[in-house]
Amino acid sequence: MPPHPSGAGPFPEAVRPRTADQDVRPHRTARSNGRVTAPPDDCLARNEWLCGAYLSSRREILWDAVVQHLQLTLASVLIGLVIAVPLALVARHRRWAAGPVLGLTTILYTVPSLAMFSLLLPVYGLSASLVVTGLVLYSLTLLVRNILAGLRAVPEETRQAARGMGYGPLRLLLAVELPLALPAAMAGLRIATVSAVSLVTVGAIVGYGGLGNLIYSGMNTYFKAQVLTASVLCVVIAVAADLLLLLAQRVLTPWTRRQP
């Protein structure tokens, strides 16, 4: 169940119930509560890891969480891409810019995810924008690094040949350099996407964590089936996204397959 903002304050329900020094490990009471509400003898009542009844009875909740997970991932990777391409181009063509750009993105990448989201709290409050911004900052490192490596790997001869054929700077970039940098850029995009799928779960701390919300609430109520189902779905999404991007890369760069 995704936490909803409570009337008592700006913090979501799932985050609030615990006090600072209380142990967060669920108590047995949480378990017996589950026993009271559920029918006496099914896998939900027995709190089993694998539970078909959970899948059928919570289908909508799971679907909503998956949709939120996908939206957060997609938004952050796309925004990251829109920012990373110009950054990589600037770093490629202005020698002085490469050091600061790479240095700054590396520093951002070093900051742990929980701290990153927390640092953005005063700016964005408890919102989806906070999670997306944090994820964008992470994806920047991977994307800029790989796009830059791809651009740098374009052979000088190729560039000169294009110039000799009368290509202007813009056409050289769009028709020669960017396509040749595509394989390296796609490698970065795949890593960034898989990482983003995994990091979205941490967004549960502000109530926007997609499947992470289910993991978080499942932890507080000791709900094994929910935690395992949501975790497995996370990995499935990550693997599916990776395969999809791999397929896209093969379609977009047919020339790479002919090389030995």
Binding site: V197, L199, T201, M219, V227, C234, V235, A238
Partner: peptide
């Protein structure tokens, strides 16, 4: 390792 969410593993181990 990258595809498996750290948070999920922490909670799974906790349970």
């Amino acid at each position: 390792g990258r595809a498996v969410p750290t948070f999920a593993v922490l909670v799974l181990l906790l349970l």
